[in-house]
């Protein structure tokens, strides 16, 4: 069985290399959401380059589209495209590897970037799966700052109206957004109660613990009659003290010294996970 904990740290290094080479990237959120994405693509979802056109594949929408670097790293690891190509082309003139998901690339279903779009789109996908009596599921990943968008709550309402138990959403609860803490900018501490009040099954787990995320996705699959929201409690910039819980690293390109320290820290985590 693959060591997904170690993989999460290896892919973090790919993300940092991508950001260094492309001189851009939402590094803090990329790091916090990594275990969510690794768990989705290597544990929870039925998706691969071989079945990417199969109508029975699981569907995914990256609503916090600015963390596309992590999506690229995970898709590359799945074999949708070579990581070397991403690192070489990301953010460059004329590239398809732009700073938000773009469905001209294999493995990406929907374009995103503006926040608050993913949940309604995922509701549509899950509804279509129900209409066609498919057993496949739909997943969507949102940020916590994103929850201030009203369209999130329109989507949340319709997901329970239609009893979409094949829909599983994740909030990457890293508690920071571009201007400060979420509690300073727009409070989200009652996120669990809010989704529960909308009729969702709500799980709250350590979102940087790969085993906890795997277990949460497994549990969501067994819930009947309503969608599941996984509040993934994470650390922004997870993996290196240089970045962790530092609001300035929402969008930041490391300097050479920072880069070397971050890569050293990530490597140490990876080796620890393999030991």
């Amino acid at each position: 069985m693959q060591n997904l904990k170690a993989l999460s740290y290896k892919l973090r290094r790919d993300v940092v290399d991508m950001i260094m080479a492309g001189k851009a990237g939402h590094i803090g959120g990329d790091m916090s959401v990594m275990e969510t994405m690794v768990s989705l693509y290597f544990h929870a979802m039925n998706i691969s380059p071989e079945n990417q056109d199969d109508p029975n594949r699981d569907m995914f929408a990256m609503s916090k589209g600015h963390c596309v670097e992590t999506l690229y790293a995970v898709l590359a690891e799945k074999g949708f495209f070579p990581i070397e190509q991403v690192i070489k082309e990301y953010s460059r003139f004329g590239s398809k590897f732009i700073g938000h998901p773009n469905n001209k690339l294999p493995g990406i279903e929907m374009n995103s970037g503006s926040l608050g779009h993913g949940l309604p789109v995922a509701v549509g996908m899950a509804l279509a799966q129900k209409m066609d009596k498919r057993l496949s599921r739909t997943y969507v990943v949102m940020g916590d700052g994103e929850l201030a968008e009203g369209s999130v709550w329109e989507g949340a309402m319709s997901a329970t109206q239609y009893g979409l138990d094949n829909l599983c959403a994740v909030v990457d609860r890293n508690r920071l957004q571009i201007s400060g803490t979420t509690e300073q900018v727009m409070h989200q501490d009652s996120v669990k109660e809010r989704f529960a009040a909308f009729g969702w099954n709500v799980l709250s787990v350590d979102g940087n613990d790969i085993d906890a995320m795997n277990a949460a996705f497994d549990e969501a699959k067994s819930v009947k009659g309503r969608p599941t929201m996984i509040v993934a409690n994470t650390t922004k910039g997870k993996g290196s003290g240089v970045m962790e819980n530092n609001v300035g690293w929402h969008h930041h390109v490391p300097n050479q010294e920072e880069y070397e320290q971050i890569m050293k820290d990530l490597k140490a985590h990876e080796e620890e996970a393999r030991a």
């Binding site: 929907m110 309604p120 789109v121 995922a122 509701v123 549509g124 996908m125 509804l127 329109e154």
Partner: peptide, 8 residues
């Protein structure tokens, strides 16, 4: 948004 998801 839902219409787009259905269409997808």
């Amino acid at each position: 948004g839902i219409a787009a998801g259905l269409a997808k």
